[in-house]
Design a protein around this nucleic acid. Sequence first.
DNA 1: TTTTTTCTTGCATAAATTGGCATATATTAT
DNA 2: ATAATATATGCCAATTTATGCAAGAAAAAA
Lengths: 248, 248
Amino acid sequence: MLKEERHKLILGEVNLHNRVLLSDLGENLNVSIDTVRRDVKELDADRKLKKVHGGAIATGFLASNGQQAVFLQNEKQKIAEKAVSLLKEGQVILMSGGTTNLEVVRFFPRKTPLTVLTPSLQVATELLNYQNIEVIFLGGRLDHESKFAIGGTVIHTLSQIKADICFLGTGYLDPEFGLTEIDWEVVQVKRAMITASKKVALLCVSNKLFSTQRYKTCDLASVDILITELDPDSKKLDPFKQDIETII
Amino acid sequence: MLKEERHKLILGEVNLHNRVLLSDLGENLNVSIDTVRRDVKELDADRKLKKVHGGAIATGFLASNGQQAVFLQNEKQKIAEKAVSLLKEGQVILMSGGTTNLEVVRFFPRKTPLTVLTPSLQVATELLNYQNIEVIFLGGRLDHESKFAIGGTVIHTLSQIKADICFLGTGYLDPEFGLTEIDWEVVQVKRAMITASKKVALLCVSNKLFSTQRYKTCDLASVDILITELDPDSKKLDPFKQDIETII
DNA sequence: TTTTTTCTTGCATAAATTGGCATATATTAT
DNA sequence: ATAATATATGCCAATTTATGCAAGAAAAAA
């Protein structure tokens, strides 16, 4: 049998079943598993499929993460770098949604093993690109716009968790009124996330400072670490220093 | 024999069988293998066929794996149309993952209000484009490859649900062995989904019929409706008619 | 943890390929 | 017609490719 014939047959199997085992392929094609392995390796290099431990999966089966331009990306990347510096091996992390948290994910270490819990569909999807990270989705009813799980289920699940640190994407932040949000349901989830974490790190682009909204998530005092793209000594941050322990 | 004659004969052979071995050609044409090799090399340069190590392959044969979008998309769309015809307003639907279910989502009605529960990140993401559908993600640990929630949390959540209908993407299906899967964790989730539904509809491209895998999800008897792209009267489906109530 | 499975790497063998060369055949020029 | 040239074919040795095997590393499972 010609190599190309096998390639064709392998692709057929993979695309049909989404996932196949190398050992099965070898048996069906009557060649050694080494040959199948080399075939699959080639097809993987050609992006025709994805090779995984023990088998192969169809590329069509994997979600394509359409990276879209992020508003204030530079600022958010600075925040992301600072946030990632807080991570330690083996930690359990809670992450809310939002573009800033998405940026944090893109700065995650590729080796350090971590567990991340999130109610954000986008954050979860992005995290699945990291083999070293165990991703746990806090399921529940999903909000169509924010692609974020809300409602009693999420909150109940969160009540049974104590994470090491929580990366909270900010809606609105003000030294006097604390954290506020537009959406009442989101407030409920964020409150539950705060309760479910030993430390709360707030990720906040500086032009969200000094703004408020209808629903209150918590006071500044509930925040342990404030992360902005600014220098920690910046005058703009002075009004927050009284209530927040650490600003980086 | 003239060179042009041989070229025609070689092309005929290749297009007939999709592939040929140089050694066979040499024997049939009564020329040395070197000559055949040179012939094939020329035909390759003219793009009349593709020369490969040890033989040649028809160009048309290779072109078919170029369609990388969704394998067997036509078949899957037929299945999707049939599946969607089962939906009724206000129903609660359970959906597993896989490309066939993704295709089903794309055929969902834009108006009919429905509630869909799913452990598949991709299905959930796709469903969020439909304002009329309440999407509930069955949270839990996510599998990196399949982007599918697995483990105790999902199964526990499912135990508290009774959906109207479950759309089950098939791993492998055989009249004797029933539904089987490669992944044990996926089997667990699918079993829980079956238990959690009043009706089970199986979505299955016909190529997947008569194939088995290591882990068994359930017997045919657990399936209420089998949906394939075939005509329900097709002979291929006969072996399944004994155990499955409805085939569409 | 220990055990099992899969992966990688290097090696050995067989088959296929390449490039050079020689011969035979066909074509062209004289 | 003959010589010169070009094309086609077959043969051979050196090289490359394909494949299987086996031992140690790495990853997953128990």
